[in-house]
């Protein structure tokens, strides 16, 4: 018997990253912008997505993947809008992984321009898993409080955009919009910030435009690459 020290230096989640890179490659080549939505439970991901779907659908075919621990409820809500949606139920796991998304890719219709992935409601674990997205959006609803970015740094530090939701409630809450934005910008100075209310329609058009522009940039970037 002999002993051996083996230097590995391998990323533990390297296999997830590899699958994510494959998804990104395939989707970019097909002209599909992939958006990963992260937030705590109840911050309004599905309701926001319903508004976004209504706004984009007339001009841009899209598809949605819903991640939850249990039930088909969220996918049903999206299907009612006439958009293909798949539910991943993790059965207890607190996040989606790239391979779960990868399995669904063959089912996505060829004309799709956007794939939205609603992650399991959780501000901690999903932040560690690349799903092959081009854009990572973190949602913060006004009732959660303006102090959340620094309490959950990884989610905000790794996002491309911050979407403040339920902004119609701000007048009734001790929520300082500027403070929330500045906390998030401290962690991530390049973060784009959108203030929305799915109920009142505020900020939805701007957000939809951001997704459309991001897709155009992705396609142009590909041509130059």
């Amino acid at each position: 018997m002999s002993k051996k020290e083996l230097i590995v230096r391998e990323e533990i989640l390297g296999s997830n990253k590899k699958v994510a890179a494959e998804i990104r490659g395939k989707m970019e080549a097909a002209g599909v912008l992939v958006v990963n939505l992260l937030s705590s439970p109840g911050s309004g991901k599905t309701t926001l997505l319903e508004r976004i779907v209504e706004t984009l659908k007339p001009t841009h075919p899209l598809a949605v993947i819903e991640g939850d621990i249990e039930t088909e409820r969220d996918a049903d809500r999206i299907r009612r809008k006439g958009v293909p949606a798949w539910q991943i139920t993790t059965g207890g796991a607190c996040h989606l992984e790239a391979k779960m998304v990868g399995k669904l890719l063959p089912e996505i219709p060829a004309e799709t321009k956007f794939l939205f992935i609603e992650n399991v409601g959780n501000l901690v674990c999903p932040a560690g898993y690349d799903l092959g997205e081009n854009l990572r959006c973190v949602l913060l609803s006004a009732p959660e409080g303006d102090d959340k970015p620094k309490k959950y740094p990884k989610a905000f530090a790794t996002a491309d955009c911050l979407i403040i939701t339920k902004s119609d409630l701000i007048p009734y809450l001790p929520f300082d919009l500027e403070k929330a934005g500045n906390e998030a910008l401290d962690l991530n100075p390049r973060l784009r910030i959108f203030v929305t209310s799915a109920l009142k329609g505020r900020g939805i058009a701007e957000l939809a435009r951001y997704f459309i522009e991001s897709r155009v940039n992705m396609i142009q970037h590909q041509r130059h690459a």
């Binding site: 018997m1 002999s2 002993k3 051996k4 020290e5 083996l6 230097i7 590995v8 230096r9 391998e10 990323e11 533990i12 989640l13 560690g128 100075p189």
Partner: peptide, 21 residues
């Protein structure tokens, strides 16, 4: 400046293992 590059602190790395052969 806010133009910072993260050098370390994001990693989740299997660095080394000791084996018996």
């Amino acid at each position: 400046s806010t133009d910072l590059e993260i050098l370390e602190g994001m990693e989740l790395l299997l660095d080394k293992i000791d084996l018996e052969i």
